[in-house]
Structures are given as C-alpha cells and as structure tokens.
C-alpha cells in the first residue's frame, strides 16, 4: 500500500455556540454546542488528491482547518506521516511540510506587506535560508514558478487581480517546500477563465513536486476535475467516499445523486429539471437518524431513527440504509 500522508480516524469537532456566561446564567440556559464534524474518517495517499464536497455548513472547511492543526478534534485522531498531528506540528521539520491555500484572495494576503515579504515569510519562519540574497533569489524563483515575474515581489497585494493574488498565495504555500497542501475553496472567488488557470497550475505543481492535496470545494465540476478520491459531506458527516470516477459514474448515496442532478451544466441547454425540495437543516439541531432523511426520496422509518454506518461496496463507502438494504 502506498504511503499515507494524512489520516483521520473518527474525528469529531464541536463548537460552543452558547451565549456568554453571564447571560446564560441569568436566563438559566444550558450550554449549547454545534457538531460541525461528526465521526469523520479518511486517509490521503502520497501524491494524490482527496476532495471533500458539500454545501455550506456541511463541515468541509472545519476539516480543512483540523487537517492543518488550526483546530483540535474534540474526539478522534488525525495523523500526519504516521504521527499524531499535534506532535507533528510541534516539530518545525514536519510542520514545514504542510501548508494551506485559502479561498479569498483579497483576505489571504496581508495588505500592508510587500509580496516578496509575504512569500518569504515561511522561509524566514522555518529558517530555510538565511542570507538576504538567497531568500530574494528563492522568492523570485517561486513567483516565476506560479506564473508571475520575479520583479512583482516589490509590489503590494492590491496591485494584483484576484487570480494573480491566488498565485501569490500558492507561491507562499510552496515556499516552505511542503508535501501536503490543504486547499480550502481555492477558486470559488475567481472568474471561470481565471479558475481554469489556477486549477491547471495546481495540477502542474502537483505533478512537478509530487504534492498531496486535500481539496475542499462546493463545486462538483471543479472537484471532478481535480480529485483522485472524493468524499461527499452532509451536515458534518461523510456520506459517500470513494474513487472520484466511480462516484461520478455511479453515485449511490441519494444526496450525491441530488447534487449531481441540481448542478446547472453547459450540456443542459434548455433542459427543464425537477429540483429536489427542502433545505439543509441547522447543524445546531440536526434531524435524528440519518440527517438527510427529511429531504431523501428513499427515506423510511429506519432512516428516521437509526444513524446509518458506512458500508463498503466496490471500494466506495456509503452511509445509507437504502443502499445497504438494496432499496436504492
């Protein structure tokens, strides 16, 4: 079996959403928590891309932050290169090998810093190079690699377009020479033609440096283009996880099928669809049983009370009673 870069086992993350202590005491309320991520397990092989897809509030961005240690799991464990993540992040030599690319190119670069300092920050933080000349050369090389000019380092972020900023963000992420990149909706703030440039660049870099990606997106078409493996999330859980091609060719979980049906596509000129009704329930008070049952056309009594477990068929793990019972 190939090397596993990142592995999550039964990871759960709760957030407290109670009101401040004083107000809570006065009104006699109990603490309230929101389960953003619920018992999630996956692993990512070296040099491959695992994508997580889902609608807002499904917990995909929380997983992105868990994966780089910005949050700690409430329970369960994340391992990086075989070591517990917190232990791995305590060592600069391992921490250097993971980095992140963000969604909003206007918020992810410090507006008061020159681009050369933004890109050089990880180099300086990890002490990878010491002489000013070496750092400048390396920054120039990185900027060239992502399709900018070395001289662009002198400028400030506001002098660049959204797509160029995302290139700067990628150059910064690469500057610590990482193996593993978490990409949190890296193109959702960009126009489509720019999105194509960035996605192509990310694929090129992956091949060139053997990078491993955890790719988070709400856009199924983008995910299809980028992923080797794919996890579909709904209300904090991964409901279907398997090889990307298999999932797109023969999705089993009713939610994944709903998503595929819902996406407007260029091939559908003039087509009239019957959209599936309902909305994502609040994660503060998720429905009992299978959380998808209120919107699921296949739901029965069992789905309303019993949480489905993952069953693996043809290398695809699906959490659905209907699929397990052969009703789907």
């Amino acid at each position: 079996m190939a090397d596993i870069v990142l592995q999550a086992e039964g990871v759960t993350r709760d957030f407290e959403v109670s009101r401040p202590l004083l107000q809570r005491m006065l009104s006699g309320e109990a603490r309230r928590t929101l389960r953003a991520v619920d018992d999630v397990s996956f692993s990512i092989e070296k040099g491959t891309t695992l994508s997580l897809v889902g609608e807002s509030g499904c917990g995909k961005s929380t997983i992105a932050r868990l994966a780089v240690g910005l949050y700690r799991p409430s329970s369960g464990e994340i391992r990086f290169e075989g070591q517990p993540l917190s232990a791995a992040r305590a060592q600069a030599a391992l921490r250097r090998r993971m980095n992140m690319i963000f969604q909003d190119p206007y918020a992810s670069l410090n507006p008061r810093w020159r681009v050369r300092d933004i890109v050089a920050e990880p180099i300086r933080a990890f002490g990878l190079l010491s002489s000013a000349k070496d750092i400048a050369d390396r920054v120039g090389q990185l900027l060239t690699q992502v399709g900018l000019a070395a001289a662009d380092g002198e400028k400030y972020p506001h002098e660049f377009s959204g797509g160029q900023r995302q290139r700067i963000s990628i150059a910064r992420a690469l500057s610590s020479e990482p193996d593993f990149l978490v990409c949190d909706e890296p193109t959702s703030a960009l126009d489509v033609s720019v999105q194509a440039q960035i996605l192509n660049l990310m694929r090129d870099l992956q091949q060139q440096f053997g990078l491993t990606y955890l790719f988070i997106s709400h856009n199924l078409a983008v995910v299809r283009h980028m992923s080797d493996r794919l996890g579909v999330m709904y209300l904090g859980r991964i409901v279907e996880l398997g090889a990307g091609e298999t999932l797109f060719r023969a999705a089993r979980h009713p939610y994944m099928r709903l998503l595929l049906e819902a996406i407007p596509d260029l091939a559908m000129v003039g087509r009239t669809r019957t959209p599936v009704g309902g909305e994502v329930p609040s994660p503060i008070a998720p429905p009992p049983g299978c959380t998808f049952h209120p919107r699921c056309p296949l739901a029965n009594e069992r789905c309303r009370v019993e949480k489905p477990l993952h069953a693996v068929v043809d290398g695809v793990a699906v959490a659905c009673h209907a699929v397990a019972e052969g009703r789907a």
Binding site: V192, A196, Q197, L199, A221, V222, H225, L260, I263
Partner: peptide, 15 residues
C-alpha cells in the same frame, strides 16, 4: 475553461 461534470480532461482550456 469551465470544467464539466460529464467528462474529465487533463488540462482545462485557459485564456
């Protein structure tokens, strides 16, 4: 440049 749900390409066409 728009990725498609129907088929997968190695590289997207880019402007």
């Amino acid at each position: 440049s728009i990725p498609s749900l129907e088929h997968r390409v190695d590289r997207l066409r880019q402007i």
